[in-house]
C-alpha cells in the first residue's frame, strides 16, 4: 500500500499549500487526475458491459442464448445471423415498411411541435398581451396531465372528425402526428420560453429601434441564437417519438401499414415469449437510427444543455 515515499508526500503537501486552489479548479484537477480517469473508465466499462452482452447475444444461435450466458462465447464461440434474419424477414409486413413508418411518424412529430413551440415561446417571452402570464401558467400546468388520461377522449375526437381508422386521410398518420405534437407542446413551449428569456433584452430593443418588427426579430435574431436549444429539444423529442409504443398502439391502431418499428419489436418475442432470444437483435436494429442521430447531433446536444446558463 505504501508505494509513495515520504519525500513525495511532503512535496505534494507543499504544492497543495502553495497554490490555494479554488473549488472549481480543485474539482477539475481531481476529475482529470489519474485516479479520476481510472474511475471514469471503470464506470464506463461497467455501464457498457450489459450492452456488449446484448450485442454478443444477438449474434449467438438460439439454443446457446437460451442455455448459457453470453460470456461463454469466450470459451465456445459460435456466431450466426439467424436472429437478425428472423427480425428482418420474420413478419409478413416487411421490416423496411415499419422502418419507413417510424421515420414518417417521427419527422413531422418533431417538426410540428418545434415550430409551434418556438413561435409561441417568442410571443410569451417578448410580446405584451392581456392574460399572457395566466395563459403561460396554464400551458405550464398542462405538463402534469398524464397522457394515459387523455387517450380515450382524444381517440373519440379523432374518430368523430374522421381522422382515425383505415379510410382516414393521410393513411391514418395524422392521429399519431397530432397526438405526439399535443403531448410535446407544453414542455416544448416552456423550455423554449426559458431559452428566449436568456437572450439580452438590449439586443431585442436595439433591433426594434432599427425598425425591425416581430417577424424580423424572430427570424433574424431569435432563430440563429436559439439554434442549439432548438436542436437539443428536437433530439429529445426525436428519441421520445422514435421509442414510443403507447401512442402508436392507441392512435395508429387497426392498421399495420402505419405502425412504427416499436410495434413490430413488441411482438418479436412471440405469442408466449418463446422467441425472446430475438429481442437482442431487434434492440440493435431499432437502436441504429437514434444512435446515429445522437452521434451527429451531440454537438448541439451539449451546447443546448448549457444554453440555459451560458449567454448567447
Amino acid at each position: 500500500m505504501s508505494t509513495t515515499t515520504p519525500v513525495e508526500d511532503t512535496v505534494a503537501a507543499e504544492e497543495a499549500t502553495k497554490h490555494r486552489k479554488s473549488a472549481s479548479t480543485a474539482a477539475k484537477e481531481g476529475l482529470s487526475s489519474r485516479w479520476g480517469s481510472a474511475a471514469a473508465l471503470v464506470i464506463a466499462v461497467l455501464w457498457t458491459v450489459p450492452t456488449v452482452g446484448l450485442l454478443i447475444s444477438s449474434f449467438r444461435p438460439e439454443a446457446d442464448v437460451k442455455t448459457t450466458g453470453w460470456w461463454t462465447v469466450l470459451s465456445n464461440p459460435s456466431f450466426t445471423l439467424d436472429s437478425y434474419r428472423s427480425v428482418i424477414t420474420g413478419s409478413d409486413v416487411n421490416l423496411a415498411t415499419y422502418f419507413v413508418n417510424s421515420i414518417v411518424i417521427t419527422v413531422p412529430s418533431v417538426v410540428i411541435p418545434v415550430t409551434i413551440a418556438t413561435m409561441s415561446a417568442y410571443a410569451f417571452a417578448w410580446m405584451q398581451f392581456k392574460g399572457r402570464d395566466t395563459l403561460f401558467v396554464a400551458i405550464f400546468a398542462l405538463q402534469i396531465v398524464p397522457i394515459q388520461v387523455t387517450m380515450i377522449p382524444l381517440l373519440t375526437l379523432y374518430v368523430d372528425w374522421g381522422l382515425a381508422g383505415r379510410q382516414a386521410p393521410g393513411g391514418g398518420f395524422w392521429t399519431v402526428w397530432l397526438s405526439h405534437s399535443i403531448f410535446a407542446l407544453p414542455l416544448a413551449i416552456y423550455l423554449m420560453h426559458n431559452f428566449m428569456r436568456e437572450i439580452p433584452g438590449e439586443l431585442v430593443e436595439s433591433a426594434r429601434i432599427d425598425g425591425a418588427g416581430h417577424v424580423q426579430i424572430f427570424t433574424r435574431i431569435m432563430l440563429p441564437l436559439l439554434k442549439p436549444s432548438i436542436a437539443a429539444f428536437a433530439i429529445f423529442q426525436f428519441l421520445w417519438v422514435w421509442n414510443d409504443l403507447l401512442v402508436a398502439l392507441v392512435f395508429a391502431g387497426g392498421n399495420l401499414q402505419v405502425s412504427p418499428l416499436t410495434v413490430r419489436l413488441a411482438e418479436l418475442a412471440g405469442q408466449r415469449g418463446e422467441d425472446w432470444h430475438l429481442l437482442s437483435a431487434g434492440a440493435f436494429v431499432s437502436l441504429v437510427v437514434p444512435v446515429l442521430v445522437f452521434v451527429f447531433g451531440q454537438r448541439y446536444f451539449v451546447r443546448g444543455m448549457l444554453a440555459g446558463s451560458v449567454k448567447g
Binding site: A164, G165, V250, G253
Partner: peptide, 22 residues
C-alpha cells in the same frame, strides 16, 4: 385485414371505448 398485437387485451378496450373498434 389481420392485425395481431401482444397488447391486445388493453388496446381492444381502449379502441372500443374510443369508438375505433375493429
Amino acid at each position: 385485414a389481420y392485425e395481431g398485437s401482444s397488447e391486445f387485451e388493453a388496446q381492444l378496450t381502449v379502441r372500443v371505448q374510443g369508438g375505433n373498434a375493429p
